[in-house]
């Protein structure tokens, strides 16, 4: 069986739709992973031990096990306890939490790297500890760690292919559906790879723009 790329144009719309779903999954999980990462980082550094240690264990498990396994746990686990989430929601939660843990690690390092003088500067103005963390420390930490968080976002985009396994109809699953009709795996997976590549280029471009914009404010 040779190659025949002429089957692709007929599925242009399907692949486009799949790509849009992939972008949607990426964006929603990115938001979860970003704000979740900040929350986890603040908890890990400032919360009392009774809160901190369970969260640390949670992070440890999330960093030590494969994302695919976590997706299975979330999808099937939630069903077992009676929560039947749409695959999209389960996928986005799984991806978002997984990367929130990784982002939290980076943001913690960012927080610790903020100059001690910033803390003093804010406190001498009369800001409380919480206000200082919220308004001064975290915003600065986040700005300095935008490049590594961007790298995580790029990894997240590629890992979003995994949610096809729990039945989210994004780019990878769309390609598989097309393959089941045409029996042309090579052509469609190459096409899917090309779509991911283009989305990735767009994402990298966007991240560079953001980095440039915050460069002056740090």
């Amino acid at each position: 069986m040779g190659l025949d790329f002429t089957v692709l144009p007929g599925y242009f719309d399907a692949l486009l739709l799949g790509s849009l779903w992939t972008i949607a999954i990426m964006l929603v999980s990115a938001v979860i992973s970003f704000f979740g990462g900040i929350l986890l980082a603040v908890i890990a550094l400032y919360a009392p031990a009774i809160v901190r240690y369970p969260f640390r264990a949670f992070s440890f498990v999330f960093m030590g096990t494969p994302l695919l396994l976590q997706l299975f746990l979330i999808y099937f686990g939630l069903i077992q306890i009676g929560i039947d989430l749409p695959a999209f929601v389960a996928g986005v939660i799984g991806l978002g939490l997984h990367y929130a843990v990784y982002n939290s690690d980076i943001i913690q390092a960012g927080i610790l790297a903020v100059d001690k003088g910033q803390h003093e500067g804010a406190r001498t103005l009369g800001l409380s500890r919480g206000q200082t963390i919220r308004k001064i420390i975290v915003p600065q930490a986040v700005r300095t760690v935008i490049p590594p968080i961007g790298n995580n976002l790029i990894a997240l985009l590629k890992d979003s292919a995994l949610v096809s396994v729990i039945g989210v109809a994004e780019l990878t699953l769309t390609s598989q559906l097309a393959i089941s009709k045409t029996f042309r795996p090579f052509e469609f997976y190459i096409a899917a790879a090309a779509c991911y590549y283009v989305i990735n280029l767009g994402l990298e471009y966007g991240l560079r723009k953001i980095e440039k914009r915050v460069a002056v404010a740090r």
Binding site: D115, G117, Q118, E120, G121, A122, T124, I136, P139, Q140, R143, V214, A217, R218
Partner: peptide, 11 residues
């Protein structure tokens, strides 16, 4: 209070 290293908020 005014510090040696200013401690302005860079963001």
């Amino acid at each position: 209070m005014v510090f040696q290293h200013f401690n302005l908020f860079p963001h």
